[in-house]
Design a protein around this nucleic acid. Structure first.
Lengths: 173, 173
RNA sequence: CGACACCAAAUAGG
DNA sequence: CCTATTTGGTGTCG
């Protein structure tokens, strides 16, 4: 019998998408799929913020950790993402960004920095409870059952996202 | 009475197909159907080169112009295709490809570039005679009599195509 | 330049 | 429902 036992393990597949990415009127969606079944799979979208693919990849990761945090649970979480952008940002680049005022290597502001900081703070939260959060890459559309399911769910979520004709200057009735 | 009369007009419906497209042992076929009846409808296949749907859409277009060129005829040709790929390539993208060394927007080599160049040279040939070649899109399986006929003929052509255990590195253009 | 992802369109099949 | 043939883009970083 081990003197100290580790927290329960959570394996979560995350995916985000943006239908019409880069086009006006794009619709984003995120999804999280649990390999083990402590929690139910979930999906959603947000009507504020840019509707971009990368933002929704991060949104999915945020939701994965948020769900695990809910109710004070302690877990060793492994998050699987197909986004090299999200993976490298959260495991490598973020350390540099915290030291340089969130500047890109060409001197520009890092995009989605608010989301990165939120995710980082949630990771520290889980660490303080004695849990952990790590990230792993999984190739998209490569036959992985849970990634494929997350992909489908995220697309469904995006399809439910109401496009919000915004402001500009439209003036009717 | 007009001082200068235009060449006779040719309206040609082209279609290509590949049974088992993307699978080993696929069989391609092409067909051309004349709305006016200067020429007989025609069909065929080629036993070299990839048996892909897109290649045969181009093969059909190539045959349409080749037939019109035969015997030194001069025509204003309108080619109807249901392939947005062939249409956009021949009317828009090719201008860019000629200036960038036949590179795709992702930096890859353009596929079927030999066929594109052959078609382009045949178009210039017809232009030099005082004729012209233009392209128009027609939606597939939409009740258009001539497109439907081309579709049937191309499928028949493909069914006659003997599958040829190949040769791996056959030279095609 | 590289990498991953997200799309858009048409067609061809099973 | 699934797959492949092909092209055109953007989102983001080093």
């Amino acid at each position: 019998m081990p003197r100290f036992s580790r927290p329960n393990r959570l394996q979560i597949y995350t995916d985000g998408c943006a239908l019409g990415n880069g086009q006006p009127g794009a619709q984003g969606g995120w999804a999280i799929v649990f390999k083990s079944n402590y929690f139910n799979n979930d999906w959603g979208y947000s009507t504020v913020g840019p509707q971009t693919n990368n933002r929704y990849e991060l949104e999915a990761i945020q939701q994965a950790i948020r769900t695990s945090l809910r109710g004070g649970g302690v877990y060793d979480i492994t998050i699987y993402t197909d986004s090299k952008y999200a993976l490298d940002a959260l495991t490598i680049w973020i350390h540099n960004w915290k030291n340089n005022g969130w500047r890109t290597c060409r001197g520009n502001e890092v995009q989605n920095s608010g989301l990165f900081q939120m995710i980082d703070s949630m990771i520290r939260n889980m660490n303080n409870r004695g849990g952990s959060v790590q990230f792993r890459y999984v190739e998209a559309h490569s036959g992985n059952r849970w990634n494929d399911e997350a992909d489908r769910l995220a697309k469904f979520a995006a399809s439910q996202n109401p496009i919000w004709e915004e402001s500009d200057d439209e003036d009717y009735y």
